[in-house]
């Protein structure tokens, strides 16, 4: 599959969106006390690190960042052509009684977040869990909703949304494949 000529969101827009999300998260938590960002590997974790960096810039506080792998918690393990790759999770602080913000790049069916909640709760009992996503493209199959959304992109089911981040992919951009997406 080739990239569309221009990304739906470019590097500057992603950077502005991440900074806005960082402000919203801190505002919602009334500061950074007890706040832990946990990103889904790999791009959710990358975004969580960027959010933490943004928070450090305006609050001068280093919020802990964890990485969560959901491979062992997926509901489609036996339906996939190959075993989902699994990597170590890294939760650097106890999550008990803290506010965990799960971070992912694209929210779609909600199944990844269901798996992430199961994975997270194996580490303890957080006071509350919030969900931050860069892109919400709709088409939920489970009763899951995000608390912080970078951008809503209305999509058709046949379309593909891909977030690329330079730490992982070598470039920043949000791409919509398939039928031409309607720019909101």
């Amino acid at each position: 599959m080739t990239s569309p000529a221009s990304p739906y969101l470019g590097p500057d827009e992603i950077s502005r969106t991440v900074r806005r999300l960082a402000h919203e998260i801190v505002e919602n938590n009334r500061g950074t006390d007890g706040l832990v960002l946990v990103g889904l590997l790999s791009r959710g974790y990358t975004l969580a690190r960027r959010l933490a960096e943004a928070i450090r810039e305006f609050e001068n506080v280093a919020v802990p960042v964890g990485a969560l792998d959901i491979g062992l918690y997926r509901d489609d393990v036996t339906r996939r052509p190959a075993p989902p790759p699994v990597r170590p999770s890294e939760i650097p602080v106890p999550i008990d009684d803290n506010t965990i913000v799960l971070v992912d790049d694209v929210l779609f069916t909600g199944r990844s977040i269901r798996a992430a909640l199961d994975a997270l709760l194996d580490y303890g009992r957080p006071a509350r869990v919030r969900l931050a996503v860069l892109i919400d493209r709709g088409h939920r199959e489970l009763p899951i909703r995000p608390d912080f959304v970078g951008k809503n992109i209305p999509t058709a089911l046949i379309q593909k949304v891909q977030v690329r981040l330079h730490e992982v992919d070598g470039l920043d951009g949000v791409f919509v494949f398939g039928e031409e997406a309607s720019h909101a």
Binding site: L72, Y73, V77, V86, R87, P88, S89, G124
Partner: peptide
């Protein structure tokens, strides 16, 4: 490489307070 990388993830599972998953 795949076995080694997967084993790293399993080692992390074993190090948790409840070292068990339902996969």
């Amino acid at each position: 490489h795949l076995i080694m990388e997967t084993a790293e993830a399993m080692r992390e599972v074993r190090a948790r307070p409840v070292g068990k998953v339902a996969t």
